[in-house]
Amino acid sequence: MSLAEFITQYGALAVFIGAGAEGETAAFLGGIFAHRHLMPDWQAAAAASLGSFAADQLFFFAGRYASRLGFVRKFIASKMMKRVAHLLETYPTGFILSFRFIYGIRIISPVAIGLSSISPWRFLLLNFIAAALWGTVITAVGYLLGNAVEALFGRLRLHHHLLVALAAILLVIAFAAIIGRKYLSKASQGA
């Protein structure tokens, strides 16, 4: 089975699992896969959205009902939790709609929201809206980068195309980490 056949057969499942476990890279690659016609673009966006939604629901319920678990207690004791809690208290709806777009706080945020007084139904609705937006935006960026790579370099072999995409992802993550740290540092100074 070739790489293209493998992605065609299991790509949506991989994007779903990857978006829940890792996030942006899997969703971004889903857009690249859609650009290469290995899966429909709606399927890549849906898989990324649903994977992110499911993982965040799981972490929310871990914060709400399983605060004695080791990984939840580790999150609670972290310095980042104080910053996240401050942003959540100050801008509850805005924070829920945007945390997945802020690099470095994606996993800890739903745990913090689970520990807060925000109702499960409110989080479910806002999480669904935010996950749908996030999945669509990130896969669209991957799709558009695929167009840009093709315009610059011509039609690359699949593995070369994926390497270029991964290099772009690493650059974006490094930039987002720098910006995210500055933003969180400013937010914590205001607390």
Rank of each mutant, 00 (worst) to 15 (best):
S2I: 12
S2D: 15
S2F: 07
L3P: 00
F6C: 12
F6V: 11
I7W: 00
I7A: 04
T8R: 10
Y10G: 01
A12Y: 05
L13Y: 06
A14Y: 07
A14K: 01
I17T: 10
G18Y: 15
E22L: 10
G23P: 02
E24G: 06
T25L: 09
A26D: 03
L29P: 01
G30T: 02
H35P: 03
R36Y: 07
L38E: 03
M39I: 09
A44M: 04
A47L: 04
G51T: 12
G51E: 09
S52R: 02
S52F: 08
Q57K: 07
L58R: 02
L58I: 05
A62D: 04
G63M: 04
G63K: 01
R64G: 10
Y65D: 05
L69V: 14
L69Q: 09
L69E: 08
G70R: 14
G70A: 13
F71I: 15
K74L: 11
A77W: 14
M81V: 11
R83V: 15
V84F: 08
A85Y: 08
H86A: 12
L87R: 04
L88R: 04
L88M: 10
E89T: 09
E89C: 03
T90P: 00
T90H: 08
Y91E: 04
Y91V: 13
G94C: 11
G94W: 15
F95H: 11
I96L: 10
I96Q: 01
L97H: 08
L97A: 02
Y103T: 13
I105P: 01
R106A: 09
R106N: 14
R106E: 08
I107N: 12
S109M: 05
S109W: 12
V111E: 05
V111N: 03
A112P: 08
A112G: 09
I113W: 00
I113M: 10
G114S: 06
P120V: 15
P120D: 07
W121Y: 07
R122G: 03
F123P: 00
N127M: 14
F128P: 01
F128I: 03
I129R: 00
A132I: 11
A132C: 14
A132Y: 12
A132R: 03
W134N: 06
W134I: 08
T136W: 06
V137Y: 08
V137Q: 00
V141Q: 00
G142M: 07
G142P: 04
Y143A: 06
L145Y: 05
V149W: 01
L152E: 07
L152P: 02
F153I: 14
L156G: 08
L156K: 04
R157K: 12
R157D: 09
R157Q: 11
L158W: 00
H159T: 12
H161L: 15
L163P: 01
L163G: 13
V164I: 15
A165W: 07
A165H: 06
L166M: 13
A167T: 06
A168D: 07
I169Q: 03
L170H: 08
L171K: 03
L171I: 15
I173M: 11
A174S: 09
I179D: 01
R181K: 13
K182V: 12
Y183C: 09
Y183F: 14
Y183P: 00
L184C: 06
S188M: 11
Q189E: 15
G190T: 15
G190Q: 14
A191G: 10
